[in-house]
Design a protein around this nucleic acid. Structure first.
Lengths: 144, 144
DNA sequence: GATTGCCTTCAAGTAAGACGAAGGTGCTAT
DNA sequence: ATAGCACCTTCGTCTTACTTGAAGGCAATC
């Protein structure tokens, strides 16, 4: 089964720009061209791309991904380094999920607060337990 | 209590460059200067900064954050728009956490696979259930 | 009084794309 | 058959959110 760049972009949910960028930077080493110089993608390329997307989405810089993919191609003696890379990435990602969950709590509180303001139509009445806005050079107490 | 830019950077775990960037772009409207033109930060500025960090970390573009902070300063009649912004951000963040958790599963599998290879010292023996590497133009079956 | 260390501004550099222009190919529709 | 359309290509510029470097001011300290 082979795909055009557009089909791959849709299937993998990335832009054609990104795919060309990865290819141009040597991260899709098996992509072929047809007689009109168009890129043609096979399933193996989709697998490589999905690894790239996974690592990029979890914050690995392109340069590191290139290095990782080089290691994969060098064979089994590079497994120790690959193992360390993936452990580091695992740690990074756990940390980022944790950070995001904390930030989400802050956002949830904002949403709840605004919903409260909207429901109670508190246009001029200040209720201490919900005052958390920083408005016009005045700071009100932040909710816990 | 007042702080130098360096102290704020350490306390909030961002670079001084970022803080100056946010200040220069109008996102820290209450920051004062001392007699030598150095920025001095009060607790209110730390609160603004923490909101900025929260929104940036969850993927809101600087331009949107500026708009949000403008709304905050415009007062209570902007609460409906702020509510919508925070709900959108909430949704975005939930989606990103979900994506990251999926990517994490892929990474976990890699880690487990490499650990397995290292423990079993499988230098030349291929075990079908664990073949997932793309090496030297050959594709082995991906693990589920 | 020179060094160290913090701060400043302003300009330029970076990463990872996003995008526009100019042009080639192939399909279809008149 | 030729015009339009929908793809694809390369190349080059633009964007975002910083990051870094250069050049220099003020304060303490050796």
């Amino acid at each position: 089964m082979s795909y055009t760049i557009q089909e791959v972009a849709k299937k993998m949910n990335v832009s054609t720009y990104s795919i060309r960028y990865y290819h141009d930077h040597g991260m899709l080493p098996f992509v072929q061209r047809d007689e009109n110089n168009n890129r043609i993608f096979e399933d193996v390329d989709l697998e490589w791309l999905s690894i790239i997307i996974c690592l990029r989405s979890t914050g690995m810089p392109v340069e590191r991904i290139q290095h990782y993919l080089d290691l994969v191609q060098e064979g089994e003696q590079t497994v120790p380094e690959r193992y360390e890379m993936m452990k580091a990435q695992q740690k990074r990602t756990l940390g980022e999920i944790n950070d995001l969950q904390n930030h989400l709590k802050t956002i949830n509180r904002k949403v709840d607060h605004y919903a409260d303001v909207l429901i109670n139509h508190k246009v001029d009445s200040f209720v201490p337990s919900n005052m958390e806005e920083v408005v016009n050079h005045e700071v009100y107490t932040d909710q816990p």
